[in-house]
């Protein structure tokens, strides 16, 4: 066999390897999603969802905070239009994440990207962004594996929550409500490449907190992200050394 040609078997092993690397990257998110999904499942059951409705929402919507808000609004008998509009606004930040990832996935198959984008979450986005920044030619297969692993964690957590959710459970007692901030903390740490990123993070955090007091529907997150990312561009044009 000429050594320029890769055998079927080797190619298969390579593909499996690429998926495996992605699963390993996604595994911590899988584990982190279990308690959050669990908390969601419990709350949905307590709001009167059936177990299948609880899990269906995780499969179809797959967006943590929007699902918590959605459950709360269903429990409060909010109208369908308000619920859907709120969900749209709460999840609009994914627009920015999708744009940011698209820039690094130039030229890939659009049908695959369409499927890939369905699984963009705050956490999978953070993991994949760091990975792509450190290594420009990661196989889409590997990034997919990260997303699917995280997705399965969210669904598994929701199923566990739906199973025990008919009993009253205090999620705060076990610190389950801190899994999300805990995950944001470590994922933010991953993004802090140099001093400039630390400064941008602090400014964004403070602005977002202030805006959160006057805006609703997660708009503070979108406005802050747009403005402070622009500030980053302004700083590097104005002082190219701090890029």
């Amino acid at each position: 066999m000429p050594n320029t040609q890769i055998s079927e078997h080797t190619r298969f092993k390579l593909a499996i390897n690429l998926v495996f690397i992605g699963i390993m990257k996604g595994l911590p998110v899988f584990v982190g999603y279990l308690p959050i999904g669990f908390a969601y499942g419990v709350l949905a059951m307590q709001a009167g969802f059936t177990a299948s409705e609880t899990v269906l929402m995780s499969i179809l919507v797959y967006a943590g905070s929007a699902q918590f808000i959605g459950v709360g609004m269903v429990a409060a008998a909010t109208g369908i239009t308000t619920i859907i509009l709120t969900t749209f606004l709460v999840n609009l930040r994914h627009l920015l994440m999708s744009a940011s990832l698209a820039q690094r996935l130039n030229g890939k198959d659009k049908r695959k990207l369409a499927l890939f984008s369905y699984l963009i979450t705050d956490e999978s986005f953070a993991v994949n962004s760091v990975w792509l920044r450190n290594n420009n030619d990661i196989a889409l297969r590997s990034l997919f594996a990260v997303n699917v692993t995280a997705y399965l964690g969210w669904i598994s957590g929701s199923i566990l929550g739906a199973l025990v959710g008919s009993q009253p459970i205090n999620v705060e007692k076990y610190g389950l409500d801190y899994a999300l901030p805990g995950m944001f903390i470590i994922l933010l740490i991953f993004q802090l490449e140099n001093r400039k990123y630390v400064v941008l993070a602090i400014i964004a955090g403070v602005l977002s907190t202030i805006l959160s007091q006057v805006l609703s529907h997660n708009l503070h997150i979108i406005i802050t992200t747009v403005l402070i990312s622009a500030l980053g561009v302004v700083i590097s044009r104005w002082k190219p050394a701090v890029r």
Binding site: R93, L96, M97, A99, S100, D122, F125, A126, S129, V130, P181, F184, I185, L187, L188, Q191, L192, E193, Y197, L200, A201, I202, A204, G205, V206, L207, S208, T209, H220, I221, T224, T225, I228, S229, G232, V233
Partner: peptide, 12 residues
């Protein structure tokens, strides 16, 4: 810059 700013905006 979006990864760092969006995560800070979510967390703080």
């Amino acid at each position: 810059y979006i990864p760092v700013t969006v995560l800070a905006a979510l967390l703080f």
